[in-house]
Design a protein around this nucleic acid. Sequence first.
DNA 1: TTCTAAAGTTACAATTTAGTTACAAATAAA
DNA 2: TTTATTTGTAACTAAATTGTAACTTTAGAA
Lengths: 215, 215
Amino acid sequence: MKILLIEDNINIGKSLKESLEKNGYELIVKTSLSLARKYLESTKPNLIILDISLPDGNGFDFFKNVIKKINIPTIILTAFDSEEDIVNGLNMGADDYLTKPFSIKELIARINKILKINKNIIKVKDITYDFDKMIVYKNNIPLSLTPLELQLLNLLFLNLNHVVSRSMILDTIWNLTGNDVDDHTVTVYFNRLKKKLDSDIVNTLKGIGYRIDEE
Amino acid sequence: MKILLIEDNINIGKSLKESLEKNGYELIVKTSLSLARKYLESTKPNLIILDISLPDGNGFDFFKNVIKKINIPTIILTAFDSEEDIVNGLNMGADDYLTKPFSIKELIARINKILKINKNIIKVKDITYDFDKMIVYKNNIPLSLTPLELQLLNLLFLNLNHVVSRSMILDTIWNLTGNDVDDHTVTVYFNRLKKKLDSDIVNTLKGIGYRIDEE
DNA sequence: TTCTAAAGTTACAATTTAGTTACAAATAAA
DNA sequence: TTTATTTGTAACTAAATTGTAACTTTAGAA
């Protein structure tokens, strides 16, 4: 498990590296937002620990503009301990917010919790979908889906509990801005997908789209 | 959303009740573990806020022996602020751990996070409308509406507390700039919709339009 | 209170939509 | 190159949705 620490205080970086490695994590430390951004271009860590006050900018903005888009769980770790900052950080979508000075053990406990929750595996009824591996299992037995079927299912799982419209599907999977496109293709694909899944996890909303619900 | 607070300090109970109710939550307060246990026999709240030091026992044990078994998300809220207690509480499986004195706003932000509050749900009387799933529930039982009926209702919910005129309906749903269009179609649709909803949430304003009011 | 226009109600035929199956073209693998 | 797999299209079926017409009721103005 890879954790990225964005923090300019070198002492914190050093002591965290030691503690986290003892707990089986790999810690990468970046001391500025620009270095972090560069790192994130080529690597996707499992979790980010983010300081707010950094030499080349503000962590809140970085969270909103960069991290949210690539969807990596984040703990904000900062000296900014005002109620407003904490509430703001949490409401922005940070998975946790810790104020300095902090307990390393507590941080590790909170990291463990978040990584446990943010497993990239979703199970709905008898179907298990692994986002990282892009594998679909039915009762733990891998299904063989074609690339397009997989993309389709991926889109549905990415929008778990949300309706995905046919036009969005055509747009995302076929890169077509649905106007005079053959709409039936979507129907046929869902038919194939449903047959392979042999499970009623895919809901059809006539005239609207398709949806998978969490249980 | 029902939240159970297990806490013997009556002042905390009172101020939390007020704040949480402002945020759309229902708070039930129990001042001892035995009372809480009794309550949990007949009801399943969506979240529990648990104090540790209670007149008839220890919150940690209660969490392990009672709450974990019925699997309800829990925030531990206590004066026990030692690193050991915090780590212990989190590792036991509590969803969060806050120490007293605490900020009510932060608590609410953490509650929201845990409940993953979906702001895209509106409830009016016995009808619940889920914008994400595009489902309408009557007393939590899904109604089967046709696409146009759903669009119609969607329009009314989007304009909650505001009148939607017939011409706007024709314009939005039927893409017609209402002139010589058959106006009665709208009437018929509202008739069908009202019949399915079997609830008096849709108000008719003769000569003006239709409206749904928040409670 | 009466009258009238607006809204409610019911029934039905026409249309739309999704599901299904089959097949040929395109692509990838042996 | 041959073979297998994947992909897009077409034709058909079944079912639900939709719009209209004809008739009734209601609310508010005169």
